[in-house]
Design a protein around this nucleic acid. Structure first.
Lengths: 341, 341
DNA sequence: TGAGTTTGTGCAAACGTTTGAACAAAAATA
DNA sequence: TATTTTTGTTCAAACGTTTGCACAAACTCA
């Protein structure tokens, strides 16, 4: 039913190849035929069949995005919307489409990726968030398939990646609390298999050290990116004989959990406990009080990742393998106080 | 470089067609050849080239999602993450992939859609949110392309759609406030070109009417889905000589804006103003106080839309053209009070 | 045993493009 | 004017599948 290049060729009285050449602005086409063909093209409302095109050109004008396995849960976090928003905006701007897959189990995940990569369905993929040892990275490298990692891989440091400096960011967040006079600062971390957890913890510890403050292991608790883990952390901290006066959390959602718990128990933020979160998702400015947050430029990360990947698949020169998006601390009420000692 | 059906055929000593038939479980293949071919298939690590497959079969195993034009902004709203989460989860479960496009301008948007639809890139599309008169719907119908609308079209009532009963939902939300003793209830609406705005307004008005309460035009203000519009609405209401004692808002984010403004000015929620929002996005339970919200099952809407579309493109029988996802009011602190008159 | 049927396989066309090679016509050069 | 070069076009193969048709071999059933 659809109009093909052949229909156009017939009607214009030329060969299909000529039509194809007009379409791709081949230099050796006479202005007259070009005009004629273009007219028929428009008249018939021709649109190329991308499958056929891809089959011969071996390129799809599509990039793939692989959502991490437990996407169901993590999606609740605005992090993902933000990063996707960045990716899809940039891709659309460059004329690329975005393909998303996910899998509920690790097997399903690999299956989906295989379908994408080995089925030549996309020109390259963006890997979202990196685990300590990510099988997907090995998979991509093994198949020589273009990809960009959002995050970092210690195992393969030489791959294309877009990231922020999480160590420095956590350092800065902690410094801010120290600058506010805090000496008793706790940390709510993320799952230990995520690189980001380790990095932020490192920055936190370094900041303490540089300020001559001894770190206390009991003031570091492990959570995930969900609210509940913040709530749990809060309960834990507030029951300690010696409490921290301030907290850095791996994510704003976690800070929320903390805040909510504190409010329920009648504590005041920042007076009883100061808070600095991470990621500056839109929630953090909406809470009461608004939560200070380390803005890591999530949208920008997505945007840049998409840009980097598209450049890579086009074979353009890459100025650098690893791009670091700058962070900046957004200070809000939750950490604005000179703490007494 | 990639392994094709021909490579497999050669190595197995059969013809390409036989391999193809083994792959599709054709009944007339001897168990012996099937076994042999399968072995080679595995040995060589064959994966079908989807482009070639699609070219001949004219089906892509992919559904498209068209994000509304100003996606950049609207994406801030968790509505989108939720609905996408539903779609992608269901699609992945059925072995379908999801393709996303968007456009910054109306022209770009149509271009992107055309690329998807006329380029035979997807088997069907999901249209997100419906404007009063949506050119995309006409476009789809014109081309006879399978699609599912999330929302409703008055112009074309007979298309596949997944929606919730916004009139009834707003009715119920308003009823709830009335049941709490409120008689002076305002409404913050959305952009008038969105169907959802009109529907919710209608339900709100009907509830007032049924309770014998006269609607006041000055208590209905128009906003968008952003926080600022809530803030503005709040300023407006609080300056009136006669203020409402409760508000229904088109979205939780808007309710947030209201709440934030009130808190800044020293007003108390629900005492000075009760609030009921819409969409029950995760923020609403995180605020102080938590905001009552009409949960319209966004995830479920996405999930069902995907399911409906995939059924449609597979040519399965559709029990019904229009699916309504049930809503339910989540009552939280922001509306829990017996208002004095 | 011979006709008819079933079973298993291969051939070749088709899907809608792109693109190198061939070639005729026109233009440039000698 | 003869030769070379340039220009504009077409031919045909290729991309990796699927599938209708043909056909041989193996069965069935009088």
């Amino acid at each position: 039913m659809a109009i093909t290049i052949i229909d156009v060729a017939k009607k214009a009285g030329v060969s299909p190849s000529t039509v194809s050449r007009v379409l791709s602005n081949h230099p050796r086409i006479s202005p007259a035929t070009a005009a004629k063909v273009r007219e028929v093209l428009k008249e018939l409302g021709y649109h190329p069949n991308i499958m056929a095109k891809s089959l011969v050109s071996k390129t799809t004008n599509t990039i793939g995005l692989i959502l991490p396995k437990p996407a169901e849960e993590l999606f609740l976090n605005l992090f993902f919307s933000e990063v996707i928003r960045g990716i899809v905006t940039q891709a659309a701007r460059t004329g690329y489409d975005l393909m998303m897959t996910t899998g509920t189990t690790e097997r399903e995940e690999l299956e989906a990726v295989t379908r994408l990569v080995k089925g030549r369905r996309v020109d390259g993929v963006i890997l979202l968030y990196s685990r300590q040892s990510d099988p997907l990275i090995s998979f991509m490298l093994e198949h020589g398939f273009p990809f960009v990692l959002i995050g970092r891989s210690d195992e393969f440091p030489d791959i294309l990646s877009v990231d922020n400096d999480n160590v420095q960011a956590a350092y800065d967040a902690t410094r801010h609390l120290i600058a506010q006079g805090h000496k008793r600062i706790g940390f709510v971390s993320g799952p230990p298999n995520l690189i980001v957890s380790g990095d932020r913890m490192k920055g936190y510890l370094q900041a303490l050290k540089d300020a001559g403050i001894e770190a206390r292991p009991e003031w570091i608790v492990e959570g995930d990116f969900l609210q509940e883990s913040g709530y749990r952390a809060m309960s834990f901290f507030m029951c300690l004989p010696e409490r921290p006066t301030a907290l850095v959390t791996i994510d704003d959602v976690v800070a929320f959990g903390v805040l909510r718990g504190l409010t329920e128990l009648g504590y005041k933020v920042p007076d009883d406990l100061s808070l600095v979160g991470f990621n500056n998702i839109s929630l953090s400015e909406l809470s009461t009080p608004p939560i200070s947050s380390m803005d890591i430029g999530i949208y920008q990360i997505g945007y840049t990742a998409s840009q980097t990947l598209i450049r890579a698949v086009k074979g353009e020169a890459m100025p650098q393998k690893r791009v670091i998006i700058p962070h900046r601390l957004i200070v809000r009420e939750s950490s604005l106080i000179q703490a007494k000692d």
